[in-house]
Amino acid sequence: MNLLRSVQAVAGASDPDGAGQIDWTAVATAAKSATDPGDLDLSEAERSGYATDVRDARDRLRSLGGLDFDVPATIEIQSRHHWIDANVETFRRVMRPVEAEVSVAFPNATRMVNTGSMAFVLSFLGSHVLGQYDPLLLAEGDDADHGLYFVHPNIVAAARELDVDYPRFRRWIAFHEVTHAAEFGAAPWLSDHLESRMEDGLEMLANGRFDRDAFQDLDVAMTAVEGYAELLMDRAFDAEYADLRAKLDARRRGGGPLARVARRLLGLGMKRRQYERGAAFFEAVADRRGLAAAGTVWDRPQHLPTAAELDDPDRWLARVDP
């Protein structure tokens, strides 16, 4: 880590193109300078282990969930710096509508603050994210490939912190991320649905208004995505997982005072609620009608639960009748 270089990158934030409120080159430099990249010196057995975990998760999820999907062609075992580089462009795409529309009285100071804020976000997440399925939301062009990432130093560190067997923990994370690939593969409409809701909400924000409906729809859809993943990964995993679930849930809630503040600022508490609320919904559906009934949520956008149905699975079952 080089905190001085990180501060210098933020302090020198500029706008060479004259079109943005954030210097994304400086964001990447500052975030990586403030983050230990971690060790990526994997043995051949470890690399083979990741490949086997992904392949086995794909086969188990296809068989158990009855979902037609494949894993992305791009599967990367990353350092923390690799993850930051991979996600800078994602953050840039999401922020582009707001950057283009919002005008400020003190552009240089605003750019420096915004650059520092984004660098902090990416640095914090880069040190905590274990794995990621990247659906490439708001990406330009239809031929872009989704990505499946595993942040190896974070997986090793989390296994040590939680006092669990590393290969078993790594396998469980692989099942979780491949489940997201299964969801987006089984629902070709899902990316467009999320993008439209995101674009509507961001456009309103850029014009100084808050579109409650758009953001509620986005929250409901992401609750379904995270909840179904929790259900399917647990039922597909080919070993005992209760201790992993309990310890990872505690990790999502825990950390030191700074980590807890950061989680609140970044909305990670909301993400944890999405996991819990969505998992409870799909567990109830699967217990009543079976796993295949839960999977019909991906048949069409109209099958997504409403906010009210997430707390009343019987209401969703009566409407969708899977």
Rank of each mutant, 00 (worst) to 15 (best):
V98G: 07
I77K: 15
D15K: 13
D165K: 08
E89L: 15
Y133I: 13
R93D: 01
H176A: 05
D219P: 02
V320N: 08
D238M: 09
A158P: 01
R92H: 02
R62Y: 01
S196Y: 00
V10R: 06
R5K: 12
R96S: 02
G185R: 06
L137D: 01
G20M: 08
L244C: 14
E230C: 15
D23S: 13
L4Y: 05
L64H: 12
E183T: 09
L244T: 09
V285P: 00
H180K: 12
A284G: 10
A109M: 09
R92S: 03
E195D: 13
R319V: 09
L291H: 05
G256V: 02
H146K: 08
L218N: 11
A318P: 00
R209K: 09
R235A: 11
N108E: 08
Y166G: 05
S63V: 04
M1C: 11
T223C: 10
W172S: 08
F120C: 04
T179I: 02
L125N: 04
A187Q: 06
G131Q: 07
W316Y: 11
R62L: 07
N2M: 11
T110G: 04
L244R: 13
P257A: 15
D23W: 05
M233L: 14
E161M: 02
T115S: 09
I173T: 13
T29Q: 05
S6G: 15
G269A: 08
D41I: 06
Q8V: 12
A279F: 14
K32V: 05
T110A: 15
P97S: 03
Q274K: 11
R111D: 00
N207R: 15
P313S: 13
E183V: 07
R111P: 12
H81T: 07
T90K: 03
A229E: 01
A28I: 00
